[in-house]
């Protein structure tokens, strides 16, 4: 008998009982869930993964025409299409992960009620499966960047792109954090299920996606970092592309503080809820 495999079932554990070793044992499941989602998502669609490219391009075209063209909102001096595309690629990753994670107990209720595995595997795997979309869309954005460099409009591909992975790690952490909080509360109160799409929509407008971070008055920038780390993360992404940014160390620190706090809270409430979530579905 393997003593490591002894399971002790008790009513409540401590308020923080995340067992990393236990989670690590399910790493293959995490990858398999991610692969399943990737494989299944575009099955029986005509255009397949081309949707990944079409969606941000169509949105970019619309924003370029309406927001930049008609409304005349500043793009901080950068060519409008690449300005929007950079932000949209990051934004769609965030919104996809958050909406998947917020539905985790509802979408997987049947499975969760029949078999146990650490529930955290599911939202974490959505970071990976959506990461594929992010990579493809980023490729499109880089192609645009290259095009603008060749036409001499931006100081394109540079060493700054080496920092982009850090941006991705930050946005993944923050998306997971928000997703876990919403997912845990949706399991308990169905109200959040109605709230989430609406909430994401509003978030799109209060984040510097259709406007530059520099449009935020200087005295509010750090506060913005605390309240909406996504604003900072997206501007960091733009910095990797264009080399100019209104975001500095204080804002980055603020965003990191909020991300860590929300992630911690998210993990704690998620692992509390997962123990009895099946009684509520």
């Amino acid at each position: 008998m393997n003593p490591q495999q002894t399971t002790i079932i008790t009513p409540r554990r401590g308020w923080f009982d995340l067992d990393f070793w236990h989670l690590w044992r399910y790493r293959d499941l995490l990858l398999l869930f991610a692969m399943r989602d990737i494989k299944v998502r575009y099955k029986q669609t005509l255009l397949g993964p081309a949707w990944l490219i079409l969606q941000p391009l169509a949105l970019t075209a619309a924003l370029t025409t309406v927001i930049s063209g008609i409304a005349g909102i500043s793009t901080g001096g950068h060519p409008a299409p690449i300005f929007y595309l950079t932000a949209l690629v990051l934004w769609s990753y965030f919104s996809q992960v958050v909406s998947t994670a917020s539905q985790v107990f509802i979408a997987n209720g049947h499975l969760f009620s029949k078999i146990y595995f650490p529930r955290l595997v599911v939202p974490v795997s959505s970071l990976l499966s959506n990461g594929v979309a992010l990579a493809i869309q980023l490729g499109v954005a880089l192609a645009f960047l290259l095009w603008y460099q060749l036409t001499g409009k931006v100081d394109g591909l540079s060493w700054r792109l080496a920092f982009f992975p850090l941006v991705i790690i930050q946005i993944a952490a923050f998306s997971l954090a928000v997703g876990l909080c919403l997912g845990a509360s949706t399991a308990k109160y169905r109200d959040t299920a109605h709230m989430t799409p609406f909430f994401i929509q509003i978030w799109l407008f209060v984040t510097p996606i259709i406007f530059p971070f520099s449009a935020i008055p200087e005295q509010y920038r750090t506060l913005t970092g605390f309240l909406n780390p996504l604003a900072v993360i997206i501007d960091e992404g733009r910095w990797c592309f264009f080399g100019t940014s209104a975001v500095g160390a204080p804002q980055i620190a603020a965003a990191l503080v909020t991300t860590s706090v929300v992630l911690f809270v998210g993990v704690v409430i998620f692992q509390r809820v997962e123990r009895t979530a099946m009684d509520m579905l």
Binding site: T7, I9, T10, P11, K114, T276, M278
Partner: peptide, 9 residues
């Protein structure tokens, strides 16, 4: 472990 008990072990 699908759901946690209220009492006992």
């Amino acid at each position: 472990s699908i759901t946690a008990p209220d009492e006992g072990e």
